[in-house]
Every structure is written in structure tokens, then in C-alpha cells.
Amino acid sequence: MTLQSFLLLGAALFAVGLYGALSQQSIVMLMMGLELMINGLIVAGGAFWYFLAPETADGQVLVLVAITVMALEMAMGFAVVTALFRAREVDLTDEAKDLKG
């Protein structure tokens, strides 16, 4: 159990989440990819606290912020999907790319 092994777990979760966020067509599935990415960040934050700087609580506070962001992201994501679905009956990313450059 070392810093590297924890960071490796974080990187693996981040990469899997990135795959989901890039590839999923359904907006709600895309959000699950984002959740997995934040999950990886949480692992890395906790590992940095324990293995590098356990004296101060900075790492713990960072994890707390990341967990909150995860919950807020889910709430906002579902609200946006609901608004989009009410307005246009759309729940796929490919049907909501009007602003694509």
C-alpha cells in the first residue's frame, strides 16, 4: 500500500470515467462517467493526505470539497437533462449540439 498504488487506482478510475464521458450518447450515462472521474480525484486526494502531508487537514478538506462537488454535479446534471427534455424531448448528446462550433 503506497502512494503510487493509490494514485494508480485514481488514474484508472479517471480513465474509465473519461471513456464514459467521451463515448456515451445518453446524457445521464455521460454524467456517470463524470462521477467516476471525480471518484478518481477523491482517491488521489485522500492518498496525498495520508502519504504526503498528514499533519494538516488540507487533504481531508479537499476530499470533502470533491465529494460535495460530486453531489452538486449530479443534481445540476439531472436538472439540465430535465429542462432539456421538457423543452425538446431530447436526452441524447447528439441531438443537443446546436452550439457545436
Binding site: L9, A12, V16, G17, G20, S23, Q24, G33, L36
Partner: peptide, 10 residues
């Protein structure tokens, strides 16, 4: 378990 479950999601 964590990474495998993450892959299972998709």
C-alpha cells in the same frame, strides 16, 4: 473491485 465496477457501468 472499484475499477471493474467502473468498467461494468459502461
Amino acid at each position: 473491485v472499484s475499477v471493474a465496477a467502473g468498467i461494468v457501468v459502461f
